[in-house]
Every structure is written in structure tokens, then in C-alpha cells.
Simulated scan of single mutants.
Amino acid sequence: MSVRPILRMGHPVLRRRADPVGDPTRPEIAALVEDMVETMQAAHGRGIAAPQIGVSLRLVVFHAPLGDENARGIEDAPLTVLADPVIEVLDPVMESDWEGCLSVPGMAGVVPRARAIRYRGLDLSGQRVERVAHGFHARVVQHECDHLDGILYPQRMADIGTLRFLDDESFED
């Protein structure tokens, strides 16, 4: 396992649609996932997509444990690996909240997201994963899957005026 460099906004790999994984049981996919998890944890992230470490495959990893102050205690999202994920919006009502991204370091912005989704994909053993997610869990999944389509959260912002540097203490929320 190794911590890999995280690509930043503007890199061409982050702007393109990623290729399908196909068979997630291949040993090279397991090795890639190990690197993704280690990179995500080293960066104190809640999720990471393969394109963020320069691999253009439809593969995401995320984790938002219950009680995590970043997750606001809303809902548990166990450490999950999804190959070739698909999202279905269950509730079209959008909720806006702050998001950050490992590929847009030091910044955050308010992003509208569907508040309830169903997601499907394959785990590393090739077994189908299907869950319904609400709140922060749903937000994390949507954010990571956006990376697979070449979308970063600033592109989803309804008001670019909310984009800010995290270390800017000159104003209050």
C-alpha cells in the first residue's frame, strides 16, 4: 500500500468521464483500492475516487462513520468500495450544505444535492452492493460519483459566491 499524490482541480484526468472497471476481482483493482483507502485516510477525507489519484476508472471509496463531527452524526456510511456505481435519485428535493474536496484543497462551497438516493455497484469480490442513503451519506456518495463523470463540486454550486478558503476567518457562517 502507498499514499498517492492527489490530483488538483484543472488536471485533465479529473475533467473526463472515467472508464468502467469491469471485473473488480482483479488483483490490480484490490491493490488500487488499498492505495485509495490509505490516501484518503492520510488526507483525512471521507471519500476518494480513482481519478483523484490519476487512475481513470469508475471506482470510489467512502466512509462517514456515525458520530463523526464531519458527518454531523446524521447517518452511518461504513467503509465502502463501489466499482461502476450507479445512482438513482429517490427524493428530488435538494438540500444545500458545505462541501470540500481533496482535489480542491483549502476551499469549501455550498452545494445542492439530492437528499435521498439509492446507489448500486460491485464490491471487490464482485458482489452487488445496493443501499439507500440520506443526508450526509447521500452527499458523500454523490460527490464521489461526480468525480467519475469529470465533475468537481464547484461545478455543482448554485452560487459561486459561497466558495471560500477554509482558513479565512474574516467572516462568519
Rank of each mutant, 00 (worst) to 15 (best):
T39S: 05
H44R: 02
M1T: 09
G54T: 10
P12A: 12
G126T: 02
V93P: 09
D168Q: 12
M94R: 15
P65A: 13
M107H: 13
T162Y: 08
A50H: 01
I117D: 10
H63K: 14
L124T: 08
D159T: 11
E34C: 10
V33C: 02
I87V: 06
L59C: 00
E95I: 10
D173G: 15
T80D: 01
P154T: 13
A158Q: 15
S96Q: 15
G10N: 11
V81C: 05
D35A: 05
V104F: 10
G109S: 13
Y119K: 05
L32M: 06
P27Y: 03
A43G: 07
V110Y: 12
R58P: 01
T39C: 06
M157H: 09
S56E: 01
I74F: 14
I160C: 11
T39P: 06
R58F: 01
S170T: 12
V61N: 00
F136T: 14
S96W: 15
V81G: 03
P12W: 06
V21G: 00
R156E: 04
D123F: 03
L122H: 03
V60W: 00
A50T: 02
M40D: 12
D149H: 07
S96I: 15
V129S: 11
S2Q: 14
L82V: 00
S96Y: 14
P12G: 11
V61M: 00
P105L: 04
M36I: 04
L57N: 06
R128T: 12
N70S: 14
V81Q: 05
S56A: 03
A71K: 03
V86G: 02
E88I: 11
F62R: 00
E99F: 08
I87W: 03
D97Q: 06
G47A: 14
I29W: 14
H44G: 01
L59H: 01
Q41I: 11
F62D: 00
R128L: 13
V61A: 00
H11A: 12
R15Q: 10
A158L: 15
Q41A: 14
L152Q: 01
F165Q: 14
R120H: 04
I29S: 13
L90I: 09
E95N: 08
R118Y: 00
R58L: 01
L124A: 05
M40N: 08
V140Y: 02
I29G: 09
M9R: 12
V110I: 15
E144Q: 01
R156W: 04
P85Q: 09
G10T: 10
W98T: 11
P112W: 05
